[in-house]
Simulated assay, not measured.
Amino acid sequence: MATEYLRSLTKQKKRTVGNLNSLKIETVAHGAIAEEDVDNFTAVELGFNEEGERTFKSLTDVTKPTYLVAAPETRYAGESIGEFFNGEGERARIVIFKPQYTRFETSAFDGTPENGKFAHFDPETKKFKIHDGSDEDFVKAYVKLEVVSSEEDLSYTLGQPMVRLEVLSNAPAAAPTAP
């Protein structure tokens, strides 16, 4: 017979870890409330709930305005940094991407990180996709990133390989259209 306690001990999911590397970051005022469980240091989109509070969820389309969820971790006895995530209903810090300024590290990536390669967030895999710049979604992506470093020393990277990304550009928000 199974118990929830046993399941929680045996079905641990590896979560994303990361760091912010910019000295001063711009964030969305008062953060946002998670509409779903979202790993830290992944790309999100914003919205509002029925009470008018700002919300966020995992990015669903590369062309949408894109932000980074980078909440300070709250851990309890015995938990590793790799077990942290932003739970549905919780408020989190949302970082505004600034070209040539916002730098961050994340373990949520696919591809081989090499300085000078490019990246964008892939909504399907919920990871930053590293490539040579020829990916068709990269052209459409609201936020385009460049690989500026990678780190495989697991003692430094909180137990997971990480890539350091810098924002190259972000598209301006589209002006509202009249109905």
Results as ranks from 00 to 15, higher is better:
Asp110Glu: 14
Glu53Pro: 07
Leu145Pro: 14
Thr42Trp: 02
Ala34Leu: 11
Lys14Cys: 03
Thr157Arg: 07
Glu45Tyr: 04
Thr177Asp: 13
Val139Trp: 01
Val62Leu: 06
Asp135Ser: 13
His120Ala: 01
Gln12Met: 04
Leu168Glu: 08
Ser22Met: 04
His30Val: 11
Phe138Asn: 00
Arg91Gln: 12
Thr16Tyr: 01
Glu79Ser: 09
Val95Asp: 05
Val139His: 04
Leu165Val: 07
Arg91Gly: 08
Tyr142Leu: 02
Ser149Cys: 03
Gly87Gln: 15
Leu6Cys: 10
Val28Gln: 08
Glu53Leu: 10
Phe128Val: 05
Thr66Trp: 06
Glu166Val: 15
Glu79Phe: 04
Lys127Thr: 07
Leu9Trp: 13
Asp132Thr: 12
Glu151Tyr: 04
Thr66Ser: 13
Ser58His: 00
Glu88Cys: 09
Asn49Trp: 12
Asn21Lys: 07
Arg7His: 12
Ala29Gln: 13
Ala171His: 08
Thr125Lys: 08
Ala71Asp: 11
Lys64Thr: 11
Phe138Glu: 00
Arg54Pro: 13
Ala2Met: 15
Asn21Gln: 11
Tyr142Thr: 12
Glu45Ile: 13
Glu83Met: 12
Gly82Leu: 05
Lys98Gly: 03
Gly116Met: 05
Lys11Val: 09
Glu124Cys: 03
Ala29Ile: 11
Ala175Ser: 12
Ala174Asn: 10
Asp153Glu: 14
Lys98Ile: 15
Thr125Arg: 02
Gly78Trp: 12
Gln12Lys: 12
Gln100Ile: 07
Pro123Val: 04
Lys11Leu: 15
Asp132Pro: 13
Thr102Ser: 05
Pro65Trp: 00
Lys129Asn: 06
Phe41Thr: 02
Gln160Ile: 12
